[in-house]
Every structure is written in structure tokens, then in C-alpha cells.
């Protein structure tokens, strides 16, 4: 795979006059593990929605030579730009294996689809091992533990042959050990891919982020390494509610009260 990267320029999303994402520029290189943080309502998830065709947006979001903003969700997924959702969305009626096999099969011909699965595709077998669910392959996805469901979602991205992975709060509700494992997994799979993680868990971000982008009120507030971002007074202002150089935002109160809950257990 050539070095393709995600390049977003002037991306803007507007809902009935409310500007959720306001001219975001963002470039994420292959091999980067980028964390996207910011208070609630900063536009993080909306940004991912826009890239994956869920909400209409203006501006541009290039992956390689393809502008993703003009495409339909399933076409974007086929280009290798894939995502997960805040609440793990796996198909609970189907087994782990069936979930993965389906994720691996968007390029299948109708004839293959209309037949039985005779053997487990290699890529699915590998993914089962990567996400440590080999022993649960035939188990219904609905009966998996919360953390395992989120792992299954990541596994589904892997078998989709995703080159750009957009993960929306992948460790929400996980135990400390599960977070650690997930972080290691993201590092491993991120080496030859582009990974963007939306996360509220600051400890998790400090441990695993290669680089960080802070969004606030739909705009990029700060970007850099974890240390650089943490040292940025503007970021401190948003996160700690320090009313210093910036004029006080009337709406900040709501944002701030929610940021208190950011490092949830």
C-alpha cells in the first residue's frame, strides 16, 4: 500500500444554522495514532460522521485521491476508511465469526453471498487471534462482554482491510486491564494504518497517543504531541475552566460542567 493519508481541509458541518464543525483542517499520516479530544459538543463525533458520509459537510476530506465528502457511506467504507460507534454496534443475533466474515465480505460477488461459508477466510482467522476471540468464534455476539464487543468492532475494521480507522470512544466502559490491552492493540495495528481515536479518557490518551488534536466549539484549538497540547494555555482554559486571556464564553459553563466527568472510571 502506498503512503496514503487523510487530509481534511476547511471541513464545515451545519445543522439548521448551528455550526457543529467550523472549518477544521486536519492531516493524519499513515502510522500515526491520533487522538481527537475536546469537551462535549466540540464536534469530534460530527467530524467522524462527516468523513464517513453520515452527515453532509462542505470543504474537503481527501484520502489518497478520493474526496470522501462526495461519496456514500458504503463507498467510503470500501475505500478503506472505516469507523466504529460510541456504543459498540455488533450484530447480536449473529456469532462472532459471522460478524467478522460479513465485515470481510463487502467485495463478495452475489454468487458467493448466496452460498454457505465453507471455510473461515484467513483474514478472519487472523483477526480472531488479534482480538483474542478465537475461543468465542461461534458464540453469539450478543452474549459477549462489553469489552469484547468493542474488540469485535475493531476486529471488524481489521477484516474490512481498513486503512483509516476512526474509533469513537473505543475504551468507554472498559476495565483498566482492557484499556491497556486495547491501547497495545491500537499501537500494533496502527503501525501500517492511520488511526484516529475520539476519546474522553485522558489517562488512556496520555499513555497511547502519538499526537493529539484538541477540538473546541467546532474548531481546532491545538495540535501536537501530548506534552505540547497539555502545555497549551488555551487547552488548559477549555479543560480547566481557567478564565484568563480569552473572553468568557457564555456557553462555556455547560461544557465545563461536563468536562469534569471526562476521566470516567
Amino acid at each position: 500500500m502506498s503512503i496514503d493519508y487523510l487530509e481534511i481541509q476547511g471541513l464545515r458541518v451545519e445543522f439548521d444554522g448551528f455550526v457543529a464543525v467550523d472549518g477544521v483542517d486536519l492531516t493524519v499520516m499513515q502510522g500515526d495514532l491520533r487522538f481527537l479530544i475536546g469537551p462535549n459538543g466540540a464536534g469530534k463525533t460530527t467530524l467522524i460522521d462527516a468523513i464517513t458520509g453520515l452527515v453532509p459537510a462542505t470543504g474537503s476530506a481527501y484520502y489518497g485521491t478520493h474526496n470522501l465528502l462526495r461519496r456514500k457511506s458504503h463507498e467510503i467504507a470500501r475505500l478503506g476508511v472505516c469507523r466504529t460507534f460510541q456504543t459498540a454496534q455488533v450484530f447480536e443475533e449473529l456469532s462472532v465469526l459471522q460478524n467478522l466474515d460479513m465485515a470481510a465480505g463487502s467485495g463478495r460477488k452475489a454468487r458467493t453471498l448466496l452460498r454457505r461459508r465453507r471455510s473461515v477466510p484467513d483474514i478472519v482467522q487472523e483477526a480472531l487471534e488479534t482480538i483474542a476471540l478465537t475461543d468465542h468464534a461461534d458464540q453469539g455476539a450478543g452474549s459477549l462482554a462489553h469489552g469484547q464487543k468493542q474488540w469485535l468492532e475493531i476486529g471488524m475494521l481489521l477484516v474490512q482491510n481498513a486503512q483509516v480507522l476512526l474509533l469513537d470512544e473505543p475504551v468507554a466502559g472498559m476495565s483498566a486491564q482492557e484499556r491497556e490491552d486495547t491501547g497495545q492493540l491500537l499501537r500494533r495495528i496502527g503501525q501500517e494504518r492511520t488511526v484516529i481515536v475520539v476519546e474522553h479518557d485522558m489517562d488512556f490518551m496520555r499513555s497511547f497517543a502519538n499526537s493529539v488534536t484538541v477540538l473546541h466549539a467546532g474548531k481546532v484549538l491545538s495540535e501536537g504531541t501530548v506534552a505540547q497540547v497539555q502545555a497549551d494555555p488555551q487547552v488548559q482554559a477549555v479543560y480547566l475552566g481557567h478564565a484568563g486571556t480569552e473572553p468568557v464564553h457564555v456557553t462555556d459553563g455547560a461544557d465545563r460542567s461536563e468536562t469534569v466527568n471526562k476521566g470516567r472510571p
Partner: peptide, 22 residues
């Protein structure tokens, strides 16, 4: 068939299937 699994998936999570590339 695999189609049966896909159809069930569409029933239970049409949007999610879209993001799998179908």
C-alpha cells in the same frame, strides 16, 4: 447462505451494515 446473515444484519442494524461497505 452468507446472504441470510447479511439480511439479518440489515434488519438489526441497517446503518452499521452501510459502514461495512454494503
Amino acid at each position: 447462505s452468507r446472504y441470510n446473515e447479511l439480511l439479518i444484519a440489515v434488519r438489526d442494524g441497517e446503518e452499521r451494515v452501510r459502514f461495512l461497505g454494503y
